[in-house]
Design a protein around this nucleic acid. Structure first.
Length: 143
DNA sequence: CTTAGGG
DNA sequence: CCCTAAG
């Protein structure tokens, strides 16, 4: 059983260092500059400062607010279930895969549906939460 | 190859 | 995140 941690609350992944994952995807170390020629900088890195090292999340583990915001926004217009299309729409440049999007959406939904005791939920904006709950209700109605 | 569920 | 199963 896993909780609303993010993925697996273990000490780490069962195997495979985190290096391999990012390296396999492609974008591991950020190049010198890519700010002006970036078609879709969103979902790729933090919008605070891009292109340079700022001690922020690279693009591997830990979903940031920018990512989940765009994910929910994309889910709101496209719908849940079309991760492949969704990826090519917003996360085409990012290293997130269909499974990653699905996993994140699952844990998000699980974390924001019910809301029994209001556990330690990730810092999310009201707009994002609203979309998540609305999407959850819509998919629940469809099922 | 993609979606869906479980660990 | 990774693996397995079904489409």
């Amino acid at each position: 059983m896993l909780y609303a941690s993010d993925y697996m609350p273990k000490s780490g992944w069962r195997h495979r260092s985190r290096v391999r994952s990012a390296r396999k995807r492609g974008i591991w170390s950020l190049n010198t500059e890519q700010t002006f020629l970036l078609p879709n900088h969103l979902g790729d890195m933090s919008s605070t400062c891009k292109g340079k090292k700022c001690g922020h999340r690279k693009n591997n583990d830990h979903w940031t607010y920018e990512e989940m915001k765009k994910l929910v926004d994309a889910l709101y217009i496209s719908g849940v279930g079309n991760w492949t299309k969704l990826k090519h729409e917003n996360f085409s440049r990012s290293v997130r895969t269909s499974m990653n999007l699905k996993d994140k959406w699952r844990n998000l939904k699980k974390a924001y549906t019910g809301n029994a005791k209001k556990r330690i939920l990730p810092t999310l904006d009201k707009d994002c939460v609203e979309k998540i709950q609305k999407l959850a209700s819509k998919m629940k109605l469809h099922l």
